[in-house]
């Protein structure tokens, strides 16, 4: 199994990054660090997907010099999926950051535990 991990080092690195991002998103207290964890997790998935499209010895799927056979190009579908995913990741990061701005303006702290404590004292 060790040799498989080394041959597919791209996917192995992607999985490690996914776990790092996931743990950060779940366990960190600071909101900005959670958002960074979210971005790391999503980037890891895109790295995994991009790795899956690559076929050794072939080139980018843009028709050059009229070469139209399928054998000359890599798989173009994962590239399209990654593009969609990146846009989704940008949108949710923007949304989370604007929520953080509102919370900071109101409670002057970025720590979720402190915000929960302040919330107990507040009314409705």
């Amino acid at each position: 199994m060790g040799s498989n991990l080394i041959v597919n080092y791209g996917e192995a690195v992607a999985m490690i990054l996914f776990v790092i991002g996931f743990a950060n998103l779940l366990l960190q207290n600071n909101l900005i660090k959670k958002i960074i964890g979210l971005n790391i997790m999503d980037s890891a998935v895109y790295l995994f997907l991009a790795e899956k499209g690559y076929i050794v010895g072939r080139t980018v799927p843009i028709v050059v010099n009229g070469v139209q056979s399928v054998e000359a190009y890599i798989n173009p579908i994962p590239a399209g999926l990654v593009l969609t995913g990146i846009v989704v990741s940008v949108s949710v990061s923007a949304l989370m950051l604007s929520l953080t701005i509102r919370l900071y303006r109101r409670y002057h702290t970025l720590n979720l535990d402190e915000i929960a404590a302040l919330l107990q004292k507040e009314g409705l």
Partner: peptide, 24 residues
């Protein structure tokens, strides 16, 4: 209100964990 924004933040965090796993 303060509570809805905190609730929305918690909702987004849990939901994004689920989305990440679904995408993977």
């Amino acid at each position: 209100s303060g509570r809805t924004i905190v609730a929305a933040t918690r909702y987004m965090i849990m939901s994004l964990i689920g989305s990440g796993m679904l995408l993977l």
